[in-house]
Design a protein around this nucleic acid. Structure first.
Lengths: 103, 103
DNA sequence: ATAACATATAAATACATGTTCATATGTATG
DNA sequence: CATACATATGAACATGTATTTATATGTTAT
């Protein structure tokens, strides 16, 4: 509805922080891998060919920004996107980039 | 239509690159400032209280990623968002962040 | 409790990146 | 042409960050 006022200084920082976290290929791969179904840390590491430690570090950052959320199932912890906002955001942006050959 | 397949390695990198550029508060401020109407470099610098050099550096990056586009008008160069995709993206994301108090 | 498995954390390092300062390029006007 | 104005570029620096290696925490089963 509204064309969008210029975001406040604070909103800008929060927005930038979110973008910054999405601005790393490894983290993006992790996010897309967890898009459809929750995935365990080990699964992520094995499937994306990343060290367990690295995956854990990235998940910490993503958790901190509430972009993902994990719940324990016995020994494993399954991570998924935090909410619909995040997944929509990702999907939308992916479309934007893929369709980037027009205009 | 499609739920979105996992992006290719290349698309992931391009997407990450775009996000990375958006992941800086200064660049975001510049983009939002140029959202409604084209703005000269000097205007940007003065209005956002940034050095002319800094603005120019950031504009170069944004230009390189085809996020903004500038055209000369006599001595000045007016920058605006490159296309509708970019501006929509920005507006959408801003809304996502602002509405981030639900769920 | 001990062993085995899954995940998280800490320290260290190598590299990327935002910012500043100084200078160059380009454009109009006397 | 020379001067002033607007923007761009280059080098230097300081800070941030992705990744690795090593180790700790937590959970289940024997």
């Amino acid at each position: 509805m509204n064309k969008l006022a210029i975001p406040s200084q604070l909103d800008t920082i929060i927005l930038a922080e979110t973008f910054r976290l999405l601005g790393d290929p490894t983290r993006l791969r992790i996010l897309f891998f967890c898009l459809d179904e929750p995935r365990s840390v080990g699964d992520i590491a094995a499937s994306l060919d990343l060290s367990q430690s690295l995956v854990s570090h990235h998940l910490r950052l993503l958790r901190g920004a509430r972009l993902v959320r994990g719940n324990r199932q016995a020994k494993q912890i399954f991570y998924e996107l935090a909410d619909r906002h995040v997944s929509d955001m990702l999907v939308d942006m992916a479309h934007h980039v893929c369709e980037d050959s027009d205009e």
